[in-house]
Design a protein around this nucleic acid. Structure first.
Length: 405
DNA sequence: CCTCCACAGGAAGCGCAGGAGT
DNA sequence: ACTCCTGCGCTTCCTGTGGAGG
């Protein structure tokens, strides 16, 4: 491979991108793009905005609890309102400060507090401070700002599940001691059961205002896609049935707009890579497979070794028939570990791992009683077999196994 | 109707890592 | 540098259970 050859390849790839006949602006379809206008969410936006508008009058806005399934526009709506609030406050010269933290990435109390403090202009060392010290600094900072602070905690369920609700409690209680300032919390979650996991005091305080985001239906999804597509694609780059198909597919999955946009983006990428000038329904079908593959790959490859071995065992057992029981899986798994010279985990642990794989959607496990023949779990493969297999083979140890037996 | 299979799944505790406090 | 604390993956020990076959 000569230097020249490589340059030619690069030249070809790069000029191909700039010459795209499909995408005008691909970024308009990525999950972190916040659109200027959110259709079908006026009521929710109005409610959040009216709660927050208290800040512009110089009083503390109520805490808001936002919930809805994934891809229903929660994050986008809140970001939109927050942005508007900041602009208005600047215009009117009213001290309002906002902070956005995604608790999926920052799922410890320390990091959440650190992020809030940083976004308010405080300095936080990497590590070394105790939570109590951090809290004290945040308190001082907020007091010094002498204004309304609005903190958005996105995917708050991750924080609560990992750390419990004491950080929330501390943030809420802070108001009791602040004089010139206040803190309001907007908690966003897609886990509807989260509320039940909270301490009653936190629950009532966070729920001062509740806003629900219902799923979109197919018609609404279609209109959202139309709007976004006109920003992202060149005129005529989309086949007529592309958007309705994406909308229909996503509507089937509890009206997830993110899923719909992913499909559309992936379909566009596939068409572009193939050098086509028009996206067709075949591209959408392919995109569906690709997204599924990506998801399975991501989940499977991050599995710990024994979970992979158990998954491989299930895969083996279900090649000739369609289901396997816990006992059979444990035996097959034992054989595999012996082959690799590893210890096995206990059967008790295996039942838990099977349940975990079930929750991830890779397999389905159903408890059945077969009378005289005992009570067990009937396990079937749920996700695409090929995708699982390729992801498993990525692991060297497991790759060896596929050759043998 | 009772039995007893083949597990499910709860409870407690252990060793370890990593992070906080001192 | 050291102890203390916490969460995680796992083991040990355990009680519970739907229903086919006796």
């Amino acid at each position: 491979m000569s230097e020249k050859g490589l340059r030619d390849v690069l030249e070809e790839v790069f000029s191909e991108v700039t010459r795209s006949r499909i995408f005008k602006d691909r970024d308009k379809l990525t999950p972190d793009y916040v659109p200027e206008h959110l259709p079908f969410r006026e009521e929710q936006i109005r409610r959040i905005a009216s709660a927050l508008s208290q800040a512009l009058r110089g009083s503390r806005p109520n805490n808001i609890f936002v919930y809805g399934l994934t891809g229903t526009g929660k994050t986008a709506a809140v970001k939109l309102v927050i942005r508007g609030l900041s602009e208005k406050a600047r215009e009117l010269r009213i001290p309002v400060f906002t902070s956005y933290v995604n608790c999926r990435q920052r799922d410890t109390g320390y990091r959440v507090l650190a992020d809030i403090l940083e976004s308010l202009g405080g300095k936080v060392p990497f590590t070394g401070l105790s939570i109590a010290e951090l809290q004290k600094r945040l308190f001082k900072k907020v007091e010094a700002l002498n204004g309304r602070v609005v903190v958005v905690l996105d995917e708050i369920d991750f924080l609560v599940k990992k750390q419990g609700d004491d950080i929330l409690y501390k943030l809420i209680r802070m108001n009791e001691e602040l004089s010139g300032s206040s803190v309001s919390i907007i908690g966003i979650t897609n886990d509807l059961n989260l509320i039940e996991m909270l301490d009653p005091r936190v629950k009532s305080s966070l729920g001062e205002e509740e806003v629900v985001f219902p799923p979109y239906d197919a018609v609404q999804l279609k209109s959202i896609l139309d709007e976004r597509a006109s920003l992202a694609f060149y005129d005529g780059a989309l086949g007529e049935d592309v958007i309705p198909l994406c909308a229909a597919l996503a509507a089937r999955e509890h009206g997830d707009a993110r899923k719909a946009l992913d499909l559309l983006r992936m379909a566009g990428e596939l068409a572009e890579r193939a050098g086509k000038s028009k996206v067709t329904r075949e591209d959408v079908e392919m995109a569906r497979g690709e997204l599924e593959k990506d998801k399975v790959y991501e989940v499977v490859s991050s599995l710990p070794l024994h979970a992979k071995l158990i998954l491989a065992s299930i895969l083996d057992l279900t090649t000739s028939r369609d289901s396997a029981t816990t006992g059979e899986i444990f035996n097959e798994y034992s054989k595999k570990t012996a082959l690799l010279g590893l210890e096995t985990v206990t059967q008790r642990r295996v039942t838990d791992i099977i349940s975990e794989l079930d929750m991830m959607g890779l397999i389905s496990a159903r408890v059945v009683s077969r009378g005289r023949y005992g009570k067990t779990k009937v396990v079937k493969i749920q996700a695409n077999r090929k995708s699982i297999e390729t992801a498993l083979k990525e692991d060297e140890l497991i790759e060896h196994l596929f050759g043998k037996d």
